[in-house]
Each structure stands twice: as structure tokens, then as C-alpha cells.
Amino acid sequence: MSEKEIEERFIALETKIAYLEEFTSELQEVVVEHTKTIDRLTAVNKALSEKIEDLMQNEEIPNRKPPHY
């Protein structure tokens, strides 16, 4: 291999590494965003589950008409 070929391969590898670093950074941002969303949804799910459990423990669930009647 000539020096020129080695240099071209080296530049190609550096370019690929740069793209991989950028991709990894973007992927990390998406993972962090999704983790925050999952945490929020988990909290909402827990609150709703507790509310449903409280309502089910109450044997007198009101059977009221909606306010527009």
C-alpha cells in the first residue's frame, strides 16, 4: 500500500468515527427524552391506579346524572 492509500483509508476511518460520534450523541438525546416521558407516564399511571383502587374500595359509588341533564 502506498502512503496515499493509507492516508485515504485513515481519512475514511476518521470520517466514519465522526459520523458515529454524532449519531451516538443524537441517540443519547432521544433516549434521555424517552426516559423522561416514560417516568412521567409511570407517575400518571400510578396516580390513576391509586384513584381507581380508592373508588373500588368505596362501596357507595354515586350513580349521579351528568351535570348537563
Rank of each mutant, 00 (worst) to 15 (best):
E3S: 12
K4P: 02
P62L: 00
I17H: 02
V31H: 03
N58D: 15
E3C: 04
R64C: 08
N63L: 14
I17V: 13
E33I: 00
S25D: 07
K4A: 11
V30H: 08
K36C: 08
L48K: 14
E21F: 02
I17P: 07
L41T: 01
N58G: 10
V32A: 07
P66C: 08
V31K: 05
Y69R: 00
L13D: 10
K36A: 06
T15G: 15
R64S: 12
A12S: 15
Q28M: 00
V31N: 02
E8A: 15
V32E: 12
S2T: 15
E3M: 09
K46R: 09
M56D: 06
A12M: 04
A43D: 10
A18Q: 14
L20T: 05
Y69T: 07
N45H: 11
N45D: 11
T15P: 06
E53Y: 02
E59Q: 12
E8I: 01
Y69Q: 08
Q57T: 07
I11Y: 03
I38D: 06
K4C: 04
D39K: 09
D39G: 06
E3R: 10
T37E: 14
R40F: 10
E8L: 14
E8Q: 11
L48A: 10
E60Y: 08
A18C: 01
P66M: 10
Y19W: 09
T35K: 12
K51T: 10
H34P: 00
T35H: 12
E3N: 14
Y19P: 04
E53N: 09
N58Q: 06
H68S: 13
I38R: 05
L27C: 09
Y19F: 10
L48D: 06
E26G: 01
K51G: 01
P67V: 05
F23Q: 12
A18W: 06
A18Y: 11
M1R: 06
A12D: 11
R40L: 03
Y19G: 04
R9C: 07
Q28T: 08
K65T: 03
L13T: 12
E5W: 01
R64E: 15
E26P: 00
L41Y: 00
Y69A: 13
E22L: 11
P66Q: 10
L41N: 11
T24I: 07
L20W: 00
T35C: 04
D54Y: 09
I61S: 00
E7T: 05
E59D: 15
D54V: 01
E3T: 02
L41P: 05
M1I: 08
P67G: 03
K4N: 11
R9S: 14
D54P: 04
P67E: 00
E21W: 01
E60W: 01
I52T: 07
E22I: 04
E50P: 00
E22N: 07
F23I: 06
Q57M: 10
Q28Y: 01
E33W: 00
I6E: 15
T42Y: 03
V31R: 03
F10C: 04
M56S: 11
K36N: 12
